[in-house]
Protein backbone atom coordinates (compact mmCIF):
# COMPACT_ATOMS: atom_id res chain seq x y z
CA UNK A 1 0.00 0.00 0.00
CA UNK A 2 1.13 3.50 -0.82
CA UNK A 3 2.03 5.69 2.14
CA UNK A 4 0.16 8.83 3.07
CA UNK A 5 2.83 11.08 1.56
CA UNK A 6 2.62 9.39 -1.79
CA UNK A 7 -1.18 9.28 -1.77
CA UNK A 8 -1.31 13.00 -1.00
CA UNK A 9 0.47 13.70 -4.29
CA UNK A 10 -2.11 11.84 -6.39
CA UNK A 11 -4.74 13.88 -8.11
CA UNK A 12 -8.10 13.36 -6.44
CA UNK A 13 -10.79 12.05 -8.76
CA UNK A 14 -13.43 13.78 -6.66
CA UNK A 15 -12.48 17.44 -6.61
CA UNK A 16 -13.34 20.18 -4.19
CA UNK A 17 -16.13 22.58 -4.98
CA UNK A 18 -18.84 19.98 -4.60
CA UNK A 19 -21.85 20.95 -2.55
CA UNK A 20 -21.98 18.31 0.14
CA UNK A 21 -22.43 19.58 3.71
CA UNK A 22 -19.31 20.41 5.64
CA UNK A 23 -18.47 17.41 7.78
CA UNK A 24 -20.23 14.97 5.47
CA UNK A 25 -18.71 11.51 5.72
CA UNK A 26 -19.50 10.49 2.14
CA UNK A 27 -16.74 12.34 0.21
CA UNK A 28 -14.16 11.21 2.78
CA UNK A 29 -15.24 7.61 2.17
CA UNK A 30 -15.14 8.16 -1.61
CA UNK A 31 -11.62 9.62 -1.54
CA UNK A 32 -10.29 6.82 0.64
CA UNK A 33 -11.86 4.13 -1.54
CA UNK A 34 -10.61 5.72 -4.78
CA UNK A 35 -7.12 5.85 -3.26
CA UNK A 36 -7.28 2.08 -3.51
CA UNK A 37 -6.55 2.01 -7.22
CA UNK A 38 -4.27 3.88 -9.58
CA UNK A 39 -6.08 2.42 -12.58
CA UNK A 40 -8.78 4.26 -14.50
CA UNK A 41 -12.06 3.91 -12.64
CA UNK A 42 -15.67 4.43 -13.63
CA UNK A 43 -17.80 5.68 -10.75
CA UNK A 44 -21.51 5.00 -10.44
CA UNK A 45 -23.83 6.47 -7.86
CA UNK A 46 -27.36 5.96 -6.66
CA UNK A 47 -29.59 8.98 -6.31
CA UNK A 48 -28.72 10.51 -2.98
CA UNK A 49 -26.62 13.16 -1.27
CA UNK A 50 -23.39 12.19 -3.04
CA UNK A 51 -24.89 12.31 -6.52
CA UNK A 52 -26.93 15.42 -5.89
CA UNK A 53 -24.04 17.23 -4.25
CA UNK A 54 -21.41 16.46 -6.89
CA UNK A 55 -23.17 16.71 -10.26
CA UNK A 56 -25.34 19.81 -10.46
CA UNK A 57 -25.51 20.46 -14.20
CA UNK A 58 -23.54 22.01 -15.90
CA UNK A 59 -20.91 21.31 -13.25
CA UNK A 60 -19.36 18.09 -12.10
CA UNK A 61 -16.92 17.34 -9.32
CA UNK A 62 -15.86 14.08 -10.97
CA UNK A 63 -12.58 13.91 -12.84
CA UNK A 64 -13.30 10.35 -13.81
CA UNK A 65 -16.19 8.83 -15.84
CA UNK A 66 -19.33 9.00 -13.72
CA UNK A 67 -22.85 7.65 -14.17
CA UNK A 68 -26.05 8.04 -12.20
CA UNK A 69 -29.41 6.78 -13.43
CA UNK A 70 -31.83 6.31 -10.54
CA UNK A 71 -32.13 5.57 -6.83
CA UNK A 72 -32.58 1.82 -6.72
CA UNK A 73 -30.61 0.70 -9.75
CA UNK A 74 -27.00 1.78 -9.31
CA UNK A 75 -25.77 -1.82 -9.13
CA UNK A 76 -27.79 -2.84 -12.22
CA UNK A 77 -26.68 0.25 -14.14
CA UNK A 78 -23.04 -0.41 -13.34
CA UNK A 79 -23.46 -4.08 -14.25
CA UNK A 80 -24.47 -2.86 -17.72
CA UNK A 81 -21.42 -0.58 -17.90
CA UNK A 82 -19.11 -3.36 -16.77
CA UNK A 83 -20.67 -5.79 -19.27
CA UNK A 84 -20.22 -3.24 -22.06
CA UNK A 85 -16.58 -2.96 -21.02
CA UNK A 86 -16.12 -6.73 -21.33
CA UNK A 87 -17.79 -6.64 -24.75
CA UNK A 88 -15.45 -3.84 -25.85
CA UNK A 89 -12.40 -5.54 -24.38
CA UNK A 90 -13.21 -8.74 -26.27
CA UNK A 91 -13.34 -6.80 -29.52
CA UNK A 92 -10.20 -4.81 -28.78
CA UNK A 93 -12.23 -1.58 -28.65
CA UNK A 94 -10.67 -0.54 -25.33
CA UNK A 95 -7.15 -1.15 -24.12
CA UNK A 96 -7.05 0.16 -20.57
CA UNK A 97 -7.61 -2.03 -17.52
CA UNK A 98 -10.64 -0.21 -16.11
CA UNK A 99 -12.14 -0.58 -12.63
CA UNK A 100 -15.79 -0.07 -11.68
CA UNK A 101 -17.13 1.22 -8.39
CA UNK A 102 -20.59 2.16 -7.17
CA UNK A 103 -21.27 4.48 -4.24
CA UNK A 104 -24.75 4.33 -2.76
CA UNK A 105 -26.25 5.32 0.54
CA UNK A 106 -27.98 2.95 2.93
CA UNK A 107 -31.38 3.84 1.46
CA UNK A 108 -30.17 2.94 -2.03
CA UNK A 109 -28.59 -0.28 -0.78
CA UNK A 110 -30.32 -1.70 2.32
CA UNK A 111 -33.79 -0.74 1.07
CA UNK A 112 -34.86 0.34 -2.39
CA UNK A 113 -31.72 -0.88 -4.21
CA UNK A 114 -31.45 -4.16 -2.30
CA UNK A 115 -32.69 -6.35 -5.15
CA UNK A 116 -30.52 -4.64 -7.74
CA UNK A 117 -27.48 -5.00 -5.48
CA UNK A 118 -28.21 -8.66 -4.76
CA UNK A 119 -28.69 -9.41 -8.46
CA UNK A 120 -25.43 -7.75 -9.50
CA UNK A 121 -23.48 -9.54 -6.78
CA UNK A 122 -25.01 -12.91 -7.69
CA UNK A 123 -24.21 -12.44 -11.38
CA UNK A 124 -20.57 -11.93 -10.52
CA UNK A 125 -19.90 -8.60 -12.19
CA UNK A 126 -16.40 -7.31 -11.74
CA UNK A 127 -17.29 -4.25 -9.69
CA UNK A 128 -16.88 -2.82 -6.22
CA UNK A 129 -20.06 -1.72 -4.44
CA UNK A 130 -19.56 0.73 -1.59
CA UNK A 131 -22.28 1.81 0.81
CA UNK A 132 -21.79 5.10 2.58
CA UNK A 133 -23.97 4.16 5.49
CA UNK A 134 -25.31 7.19 7.34
CA UNK A 135 -28.18 5.16 8.70
CA UNK A 136 -31.16 7.09 7.27
CA UNK A 137 -32.53 8.80 4.16
CA UNK A 138 -30.49 11.96 4.59
CA UNK A 139 -31.00 13.45 1.13
CA UNK A 140 -34.74 13.75 1.68
CA UNK A 141 -34.31 15.10 5.18
CA UNK A 142 -33.59 12.26 7.61
CA UNK A 143 -36.19 9.51 7.30
CA UNK A 144 -35.68 6.04 8.74
CA UNK A 145 -34.22 3.29 6.58
CA UNK A 146 -33.70 -0.36 7.44
CA UNK A 147 -30.17 0.66 8.37
CA UNK A 148 -31.36 3.09 11.05
CA UNK A 149 -30.44 1.63 14.44
CA UNK A 150 -32.93 0.75 17.13
CA UNK A 151 -33.93 3.80 19.12
CA UNK A 152 -32.65 6.40 16.66
CA UNK A 153 -34.97 9.32 16.01
CA UNK A 154 -35.64 10.30 12.41
CA UNK A 155 -38.44 12.36 10.88
CA UNK A 156 -40.42 9.17 10.17
CA UNK A 157 -39.45 7.50 13.43
CA UNK A 158 -39.61 10.46 15.76
CA UNK A 159 -39.12 10.24 19.49
CA UNK A 160 -42.76 10.84 20.32
CA UNK A 161 -44.85 10.69 23.45
CA UNK A 162 -45.90 7.09 22.83
CA UNK A 163 -43.00 5.74 20.78
CA UNK A 164 -39.31 6.15 21.47
CA UNK A 165 -38.09 6.43 17.87
CA UNK A 166 -37.20 3.42 15.70
CA UNK A 167 -38.57 0.21 17.14
CA UNK A 168 -36.67 -2.26 14.94
CA UNK A 169 -32.98 -3.08 14.92
CA UNK A 170 -30.59 -2.26 12.06
CA UNK A 171 -30.50 -4.70 9.16
CA UNK A 172 -27.15 -6.49 8.86
CA UNK A 173 -26.43 -5.90 5.17
CA UNK A 174 -22.75 -6.82 5.45
CA UNK A 175 -23.67 -10.36 6.56
CA UNK A 176 -26.25 -10.61 3.80
CA UNK A 177 -23.52 -9.75 1.31
CA UNK A 178 -21.25 -12.38 2.90
CA UNK A 179 -24.08 -14.86 2.28
CA UNK A 180 -23.82 -14.08 -1.44
CA UNK A 181 -20.46 -15.92 -1.39
CA UNK A 182 -18.76 -13.17 -3.35
CA UNK A 183 -14.96 -12.95 -3.28
CA UNK A 184 -14.67 -9.98 -0.95
CA UNK A 185 -16.78 -8.26 1.71
CA UNK A 186 -15.53 -5.70 4.22
CA UNK A 187 -16.59 -3.09 6.73
CA UNK A 188 -14.64 0.15 6.93
CA UNK A 189 -14.69 3.47 8.71
CA UNK A 190 -13.22 6.76 7.46
CA UNK A 191 -11.51 7.15 10.84
CA UNK A 192 -9.20 4.27 9.89
CA UNK A 193 -8.00 5.48 6.50
CA UNK A 194 -5.16 3.03 6.02
CA UNK A 195 -7.46 0.10 6.81
CA UNK A 196 -9.98 1.50 4.30
CA UNK A 197 -7.44 2.07 1.54
CA UNK A 198 -5.94 -1.38 2.01
CA UNK A 199 -9.40 -2.97 1.80
CA UNK A 200 -10.25 -0.89 -1.26
CA UNK A 201 -7.05 -2.10 -2.92
CA UNK A 202 -8.07 -5.68 -2.23
CA UNK A 203 -11.61 -5.06 -3.44
CA UNK A 204 -10.42 -3.52 -6.73
CA UNK A 205 -8.10 -6.41 -7.42
CA UNK A 206 -10.70 -9.16 -6.97
CA UNK A 207 -11.82 -11.16 -9.94
CA UNK A 208 -15.54 -10.68 -9.32
CA UNK A 209 -17.76 -8.56 -7.13
CA UNK A 210 -16.66 -6.91 -3.91
CA UNK A 211 -18.79 -5.18 -1.30
CA UNK A 212 -17.62 -2.58 1.20
CA UNK A 213 -19.84 -1.11 3.88
CA UNK A 214 -18.53 2.22 5.15
CA UNK A 215 -19.69 4.03 8.26
CA UNK A 216 -20.50 7.57 7.21
CA UNK A 217 -21.46 10.05 9.95
CA UNK A 218 -23.96 12.74 8.96
CA UNK A 219 -23.77 16.10 10.73
CA UNK A 220 -27.25 16.97 9.48
CA UNK A 221 -29.06 13.80 10.38
CA UNK A 222 -27.36 12.35 13.41
CA UNK A 223 -26.91 15.37 14.11
CA UNK A 224 -23.44 16.31 15.30
CA UNK A 225 -20.90 19.12 14.88
CA UNK A 226 -19.16 19.16 11.49
CA UNK A 227 -15.77 18.69 13.12
CA UNK A 228 -16.89 15.54 14.96
CA UNK A 229 -17.28 13.35 11.87
CA UNK A 230 -14.06 11.40 12.17
CA UNK A 231 -14.34 11.24 15.96
CA UNK A 232 -17.79 9.70 15.68
CA UNK A 233 -16.61 7.28 13.00
CA UNK A 234 -13.79 6.26 15.33
CA UNK A 235 -16.14 5.88 18.30
CA UNK A 236 -18.39 3.61 16.22
CA UNK A 237 -15.36 1.35 15.82
CA UNK A 238 -14.04 1.65 19.38
CA UNK A 239 -17.44 0.87 20.91
CA UNK A 240 -17.52 -2.20 18.60
CA UNK A 241 -20.81 -0.89 17.14
CA UNK A 242 -19.09 -0.88 13.72
CA UNK A 243 -16.28 -3.44 13.78
CA UNK A 244 -13.64 -3.40 11.06
CA UNK A 245 -13.35 -6.78 9.39
CA UNK A 246 -13.14 -8.45 6.02
CA UNK A 247 -14.37 -11.73 4.57
CA UNK A 248 -12.11 -12.85 1.77
CA UNK A 249 -13.24 -15.93 -0.12
CA UNK A 250 -15.26 -16.99 2.90
CA UNK A 251 -12.49 -16.38 5.43
CA UNK A 252 -13.37 -13.94 8.20
CA UNK A 253 -10.64 -11.64 9.51
CA UNK A 254 -10.82 -8.91 12.13
CA UNK A 255 -8.65 -6.05 10.87
CA UNK A 256 -8.76 -3.88 13.97
CA UNK A 257 -9.37 -4.74 17.58
CA UNK A 258 -9.81 -1.77 19.94
CA UNK A 259 -7.43 -1.89 22.89
CA UNK A 260 -10.32 -1.08 25.15
CA UNK A 261 -13.92 -1.64 24.12
CA UNK A 262 -15.71 1.58 25.04
CA UNK A 263 -19.31 1.68 26.23
CA UNK A 264 -21.82 2.38 23.46
CA UNK A 265 -23.10 5.45 25.33
CA UNK A 266 -19.79 7.21 24.48
CA UNK A 267 -20.94 7.14 20.86
CA UNK A 268 -24.66 7.64 21.49
CA UNK A 269 -24.35 10.70 23.71
CA UNK A 270 -22.67 12.82 21.01
CA UNK A 271 -25.63 12.45 18.66
CA UNK A 272 -28.93 14.28 18.77
CA UNK A 273 -30.85 11.33 17.35
CA UNK A 274 -30.24 9.35 20.56
CA UNK A 275 -30.84 12.21 22.99
CA UNK A 276 -34.20 10.86 24.16
CA UNK A 277 -32.61 7.54 25.08
CA UNK A 278 -30.91 9.17 28.03
CA UNK A 279 -34.24 9.75 29.75
CA UNK A 280 -34.67 7.25 32.58
CA UNK A 281 -37.73 5.63 30.97
CA UNK A 282 -35.70 4.74 27.88
CA UNK A 283 -32.76 3.17 29.65
CA UNK A 284 -33.93 -0.27 28.56
CA UNK A 285 -33.37 0.72 24.90
CA UNK A 286 -29.75 1.63 25.61
CA UNK A 287 -29.39 -1.70 27.43
CA UNK A 288 -30.85 -3.48 24.42
CA UNK A 289 -28.49 -1.68 22.04
CA UNK A 290 -25.48 -2.47 24.22
CA UNK A 291 -26.52 -6.12 24.53
CA UNK A 292 -26.86 -6.38 20.77
CA UNK A 293 -23.40 -4.85 20.22
CA UNK A 294 -21.89 -7.22 22.81
CA UNK A 295 -23.50 -10.27 21.31
CA UNK A 296 -22.48 -9.40 17.76
CA UNK A 297 -18.95 -8.53 18.83
CA UNK A 298 -18.55 -11.87 20.60
CA UNK A 299 -19.88 -13.68 17.53
CA UNK A 300 -17.46 -11.76 15.32
CA UNK A 301 -14.51 -12.60 17.57
CA UNK A 302 -15.61 -16.18 17.30
CA UNK A 303 -15.86 -16.10 13.49
CA UNK A 304 -12.49 -14.40 13.16
CA UNK A 305 -10.73 -16.68 15.65
CA UNK A 306 -9.87 -13.78 17.96
CA UNK A 307 -11.63 -14.99 21.08
Amino acid sequence: MANLKEMATRESRLTGGHRLCSGCGAPVVVKQILAGTKKPVVVGAATGCLEVGTTIYPYTAWKTPFIHSAFENSAATMSGVETAYRAMKKKGAIEEDVKFVVFAGDGGSYDIGFQSLSGAMERGHNLVYVVYDNEAYMNTGVQRSSSTPLGAATTTSPAGKKMAAKSRPKKDLTSIMVAHNIPYVAQVSPSHWSDTVRKAEKAFEQDGPAFINAMSPCPLGWPHEADQTIELAKLAVDTCYWPLFEVENGEWRLTYKPKKKRPLTDWLELQGRFKHLFKPENKHIIDQLQASVDQKWEALLDKTGRK
Binding site: T83, A84, M88, R123
Partner: peptide, 25 residues
Amino acid sequence: DTEFVTVESEHSAMSATVGAAAAGV
Protein backbone atom coordinates in the same frame (compact mmCIF):
# COMPACT_ATOMS: atom_id res chain seq x y z
CA ASP B 1 -20.71 -12.47 -29.75
CA THR B 2 -23.19 -10.60 -27.51
CA GLU B 3 -22.71 -10.34 -23.75
CA PHE B 4 -26.04 -11.44 -22.28
CA VAL B 5 -26.92 -10.18 -18.80
CA THR B 6 -29.46 -12.41 -17.07
CA VAL B 7 -30.83 -9.71 -14.79
CA GLU B 8 -33.06 -10.33 -11.78
CA SER B 9 -35.91 -8.05 -12.95
CA GLU B 10 -37.10 -5.82 -15.76
CA HIS B 11 -36.15 -2.77 -13.74
CA SER B 12 -32.58 -4.02 -13.78
CA ALA B 13 -32.92 -5.09 -17.43
CA MET B 14 -33.57 -1.52 -18.49
CA SER B 15 -31.01 -0.18 -15.99
CA ALA B 16 -28.26 -2.47 -17.28
CA THR B 17 -29.22 -1.62 -20.86
CA VAL B 18 -28.98 2.07 -20.00
CA GLY B 19 -25.56 1.45 -18.42
CA ALA B 20 -24.32 -0.45 -21.46
CA ALA B 21 -25.67 2.10 -23.95
CA ALA B 22 -24.16 4.95 -21.92
CA ALA B 23 -20.87 3.06 -21.85
CA GLY B 24 -20.91 3.37 -25.62
CA VAL B 25 -22.06 0.07 -27.09
